[in-house]
Design a protein around this nucleic acid. Sequence first.
DNA 1: ATTTTTTTTGTAAGCGGTTACATTTTTTGT
DNA 2: ACAAAAAATGTAACCGCTTACAAAAAAAAT
Lengths: 341, 341
Amino acid sequence: MNIYDISKLAGVSTATVSRVINGFDNVKPATREKVLSIIASQGYTPNAFARGLGLNSMKTIGIMCADSSDMYLAKAVYYIEGALRENGYHCILTCTGYERKSQRESMEMLMSQHVDCIILAGSIFIDKDNSNNKYIYKAADSVPIMLLNANLDHKNIYCISCDDSAAMEKATEFLIDNKRNNILYLYNSNSYSATRKLSGYRHAFEKKGLKCNEDYIRYFNGTSKDLEKVCGFVTELADKGLKFNGVVASEDFLAVGALKYAVRKGIKVPKDLEIIGYNNSVLTVCTEPELSSVDNQLETLCTNLVRICIGALSGESMPQKTVFNGELIHRSTSASSRKTK
Amino acid sequence: MNIYDISKLAGVSTATVSRVINGFDNVKPATREKVLSIIASQGYTPNAFARGLGLNSMKTIGIMCADSSDMYLAKAVYYIEGALRENGYHCILTCTGYERKSQRESMEMLMSQHVDCIILAGSIFIDKDNSNNKYIYKAADSVPIMLLNANLDHKNIYCISCDDSAAMEKATEFLIDNKRNNILYLYNSNSYSATRKLSGYRHAFEKKGLKCNEDYIRYFNGTSKDLEKVCGFVTELADKGLKFNGVVASEDFLAVGALKYAVRKGIKVPKDLEIIGYNNSVLTVCTEPELSSVDNQLETLCTNLVRICIGALSGESMPQKTVFNGELIHRSTSASSRKTK
DNA sequence: ATTTTTTTTGTAAGCGGTTACATTTTTTGT
DNA sequence: ACAAAAAATGTAACCGCTTACAAAAAAAAT
């Protein structure tokens, strides 16, 4: 059943059927009705390939992310997909893992699918020294690229991010103001936003006229699957003599690991140790006491990303960089003696 | 840049170029080399629409799930997408939410995209009384349908699931054997697998010759976002006088909520209350003590689903129903006095 | 009533591949 | 060296839709 069959049944040309399908207004109402009824009675749906061939667009957008099972990225994908669907777009999802090669391959795959736009959810894809981003620039020459929580300069690349630096600075500052003089910083990634977070941590000390002790900045090599190991990692740091009365982490699971350590050692939280995570994920409410965390407004980021994406695709002029602010959410692992909000 | 341009540059016909691209073996090595070098030098990629039009397949598979930000479904999508990509397939992801209407629309959308197969990840789509599944059967007439954790009879529908009933029975039985006489059952869904789990709970009592007290079966209306409410819900049950010394839940977050209640009330876990969750998600290791849970082998389910899917697409005869066993993972909320494994 | 303008409809040429079939080239057999 | 078989290549129709342009029909203007 194709457009030709429909046109025969309706006694009109394929052009007219096409016009009806695409909602053109230059069709006589009576004709439109007839065609529509035939289409409905035959249960006809246009062939998307043929349409794509003609229009060179299938209203499809590619989403790349390193790992869609990561809680944060899964949410990002969910919000993005939902917003795109509302705008009549379909999503091809591809998870690239954390290796550059597979990231490049994914992008090539999406390009060969002639997606209308590519969204990079998560900044793992970006080389900070810009050495290896050629394939992104190349793609950007033919299709707009949306970057979530990342940054790259190109006239066809749009960046939407949370000011992670400012947010982390706020969190750290909160602890400093609370007389926490030794604040452990845990992180597990060197992505763009992770780097920004770390610089926020450093800024906080600078701002207060304090010196940031590099010994308190610790890299943990693992993901949320390794939560138990995080606890061991922190315990080991403490056993080795590192004294700390505050923890800020670049991701919630790291903070949960630190909290585990505290609970097991019987350390009073937040009295003797304050802990602040990042992302404000479900994990924050699983623990007892519940974890304070920075909310980086993922939903807002995603809906705006899609808004800008749709705008750019329809030729409107859209802002190249869009930045939102994070928010510190106080629960039970940060001392609420001070104003919370 | 299209196949015609390449053929000109290489001094061969489009048919030959096409043969090279598709890896046919009836091309003279020298010719193949020349064509490949031209393709590489021009950075040419075939137009997927045109190819799709010709083959009536874009090597694309649709994945439907209610909510890809749900931790369990996010993992499912991740595993499925990865396995499909390894087999050269692309994935169109669509999240339907929990309403029938949007589910039907998603499916129609995928059909109009001429996907080669549709995967329903999660059984929310299935009406138990089979009253409203017509659209699924209709789709199955033209394309194979894969059901994860669900069940439907049709010659073109393949079902892959965990025997949730048996797994839940095992968990419940464990508690009964541990002299837990009042076991609260928490659930929040009426999907196929949720129903199966509940029947497993009931079977356990039957098997032991005990009567299952319906008063202990409680429905909580919410998702993991409402974790705090779960705790309130359980607290309220206790306050109303319901006595229980065991909890099994159809999802981990419900168990975490129950655990929260216990921790706050100072109830000793597992001594005075044993708790077992379901899905073996990250949540299980966030809590202190850590949560025992049933692992329903999601990765195995997904890789097998894809294996069967690929097989079916290439015309092989594949099993209509595939069932795996779940496994009870003991952590610190179940008494390990007995053998744990 | 005739001409002009506007609206509606039709014709046919793409879009960029695949592939059945025809043709040419190469290899093999005698 | 020549015929037969096999391998390599080319030709052109086809997939199902869109759309520029042409043509016909309807409406408006004279």
